[in-house]
Design a protein around this nucleic acid. Structure first.
Lengths: 213, 213
DNA sequence: GTCTATAATCGGATAGAC
DNA sequence: GTCTATCCGATTATAGAC
């Protein structure tokens, strides 16, 4: 029925597509302006739609923001999985750092929205921090402590190590504009980014691994 | 004349004090909400003053934001100085990392405002990035390259190293809320923070220094 | 589902009494 | 210098035609 109808229109290819369009526009505006600074007018304009359409798909600005946040957290969880399923400390941490670097490069907006949300005091992701994130960290700490006990890593705080990894990798998303400016106005090329990724891995692992005799 | 008058009033101890009060309130609101999300009403309320007083001291919201930013950049430059005046790579980098960690702990709001400004695309600090920051980095890169040539450091990109230091240290300011949540709801104690500082220094230096025979 | 028009409120900034 | 009251454009959200 309405399928035929929508096949006849060139624009608005369907509910799912319009929602995705709005979510993408919202992601970029929220990443730039934060929740408070973003306006539904700016989001609608970036999506090329009238403001009222936005409210048809998402009743309120906060509902739209929540939908964007859900995608952000989903991407985070996907990268988190790469920590596991590795035999040695070196393999597990290398895989995790590389996954987080790739995430920062592929989804910089998601990283910025998360950062902005934390700086606001996490009004909407506090539950995620206290349950999912805290549990993830609590499960990895004994693994890291185990590597220390096994003589693979120098004695250190697992939390502090994880914070270093988060900070260093997310920096490439959150401060991409600063990095671009200091790189002569050009974004890092794939080659430059891969070199940075390698150096980050080597510096952190070099700083914590105990050499095998 | 008006001096006597102001001595008789218990509140509003003078122009400088009122300005400082407003700047402090503005700093905390801008750090939480970003430029766009902050409202002059919220800032005035946090300062305990009517909105109109804010506009008496700072004609526009942007003027107030600029004044806050100036303080932020001033603090940044103070910490930057600790890089220099050290004989060895180990001493210089240790001093710099420690200074940046102390800055993050002492002035977390400044760090968050800077981060938020960069994520917006640096509309007001682009000039600082292109001149002061770029020059600072350009002056330090040959120093780091010199340490590599002298066999003090493993071969690496100086820029990538500096980014790691910025990222890791600023994380303790920008993500303090997340760290607090993952620390059982308590901010890091001085002891915990000092331990983190030590581990950050040891990990980075351990990852880049060449052992002296 | 989409659009124009509009209601209702918020927020930056000002007027003018004190 | 400080305060209350207020203007007016911006912003969220809705109404109602198509």
């Amino acid at each position: 029925m309405s399928e035929i109808h929508s096949l006849m229109r060139k624009k608005s290819s369907g509910r799912a597509e319009t929602e995705a369009l709005l979510l993408a526009a919202a992601e970029s505006v929220f990443a730039e302006q934060g929740f408070g600074g973003a306006t539904t007018a700016a989001i609608a304009k970036r999506a090329g739609l009238p403001k009222s359409n936005l409210h048809y798909y998402f009743p309120t600005k906060e509902a739209l923001y929540r939908a964007v946040l859900a995608n952000v957290l989903e991407a985070w969880l996907a990268a988190a999985a790469s920590f596991d399923r590795a035999a040695s400390a070196e393999q597990a941490l290398t895989a995790y750092i590389e996954a987080k670097m790739d995430l920062a490069r592929q989804f910089p907006l998601a990283s910025r929205i998360f950062a902005s949300e934390i700086m606001r005091g996490a009004p909407l992701v506090q539950d995620f921090l206290e349950t999912t994130l805290k549990a993830w960290l609590a499960q990895r700490e004994p693994i890291i402590d185990g590597w220390i006990a096994a003589g693979q890593l120098r004695p250190l705080s697992a939390k502090t190590l994880i914070y270093m990894i988060w900070a260093t990798t997310q920096h490439y998303a959150d401060f991409a504009h600063q990095i671009k400016t200091l790189n002569g106005g050009h974004d890092l090329s794939t080659r430059e980014f891969d070199a940075a990724k390698r150096q980050v891995v080597e510096t952190i692992l070099g700083g914590i691994l105990i050499e095998r005799p």
